[in-house]
């Protein structure tokens, strides 16, 4: 799947010297955000060749305080993207390799008896980090997968009746193989719903692959990657994103879009209200990344497929006809009128 079929990033059409609130100094935060985001993007793109859309979306999800699901066949750079993003932010990064025998406590942590204090002491699991890279998440049993549920949504962990808050920013970047691959368990709907967006990497084009050979042939590019932002920078950026304006019409547009998925005859399960929240939040982040202090329908359109498609279940008939949720979402976006002043 290719990310962002609708509403490519807007380059060149709007004159750079046009009157814009950003340039009017309405928000200095947006300037900073652009600067930092630009650095992170540059850092990640130095590792992942030829995938600017995937990188931009990953960054969007980070700023929207969401979690990212990267789905593709093995060996296209899923883990590389996750690790590069994690490394370029100077926060704690943990990586979990999901295997069929992984237990929930291997993620959340365990209470161990401390001989010295003669008390149970909580040993935090790898989930206690700013960025958690869950590799091949769908190779773990559903039980272990669901251990992530509470962490992802409520940003807290409860072990033995004690609740531990997770640090901000907190982002889970999970990679998974397509479910047709051997030894995989499909993620339950509830789990999928907690990921803000799902992207596919896709194969790089020949040029990028050639360059990759040159670079990766000698050493791993990850090794030379230094952090370009602190985690408190990212926290500040997230606060800026929350200030982005969403007009009434745009909100309604998002709701119309979500409602259309619920009524579509080819979908068994439409998008949840959480999806609406994620969609608008991600749209805010995207607008901020574009240095805008307001959301336009194009943001919603650009994010509709990555944010919604993995949550939708096609009907049996649609499956027989090989209709993918992505196609349905794209059709809805094509048909739904954008909010105008009269509506």
């Amino acid at each position: 799947m290719v990310v962002g079929t609708h509403g490519e990033p807007y380059r060149g059409d709007i004159p750079a010297d046009s009157p814009d609130s950003i340039r009017n100094g309405a928000s200095r935060g947006l300037d900073e955000l652009a600067q930092v985001a630009g650095k992170i993007r540059g850092a990640v793109e130095s590792v992942i060749e030829g995938k600017p859309d995937a990188v931009r979306l990953a960054l969007t999800v980070l700023l929207a305080e969401g979690h990212l699901l990267i789905e593709d066949v093995p060996g296209v750079g899923k883990t590389m993207l996750a690790k590069a993003l994690a490394r370029s932010v100077d926060g704690s990064v943990r990586r979990v390799q999901f295997t069929p025998d992984l237990l929930p406590s291997d993620i959340t942590g365990v209470s161990a008896f401390n001989q010295e204090s003669r008390d149970f002491e909580f040993k935090p699991g790898p989930i206690f980090a700013n960025i958690v890279v869950g590799d091949e998440i769908n190779r773990a049993s559903p039980k272990t997968q669901s251990a992530l549920l509470e962490c992802m949504e409520e940003r807290q962990v409860t072990v033995d009746g004690t609740t531990y808050e997770l640090e901000r920013p907190f982002m889970v970047i999970a990679t998974q193989n397509p479910i047709e691959m051997e030894g995989t368990y499909p993620l339950p709907e509830a789990q999928r719903d907690r990921f803000t967006a799902r992207i596919s990497m896709g194969y790089p084009d020949p040029g990028a692959e050639l360059e990759m050979l040159d670079v990766h042939g000698r050493s791993s590019p990850l090794e030379g990657l230094a952090p370009v932002a602190f985690s408190h920078d990212v926290r500040a950026l997230i606060d800026v994103v929350r200030q982005v304006h969403v007009a009434q019409g745009v909100r309604r547009y998002a709701i119309d879009l979500i409602t259309a998925t619920r009524r579509h005859p080819e979908l068994r399960l439409g998008a949840s209200p959480r999806a609406t929240l994620h969609l608008v939040r991600a749209a805010r982040a995207l607008a901020a990344l574009e240095e805008r202090d307001y959301v336009v329908p194009d943001d919603i359109q650009a994010l509709a497929v990555p944010v919604l498609a993995h949550r939708l279940l096609p009907t049996a008939e649609a499956q027989v006809e090989r209709r993918l949720p992505e196609q349905v979402v794209r059709e809805i976006v094509d048909r739904l009128p954008v909010p105008t002043p009269h509506r």
Binding site: D13, P19, S21, G249, D293, Y294
Partner: peptide
């Protein structure tokens, strides 16, 4: 193209931005 961009931006801001240009 620039004129068109100005028109689009003006309309966009009038529709969706907190303060029109």
């Amino acid at each position: 193209a620039e004129a068109m961009g100005r028109l689009a931006l003006a309309e966009e801001r009038a529709r969706y931005a907190p303060t029109p240009a």
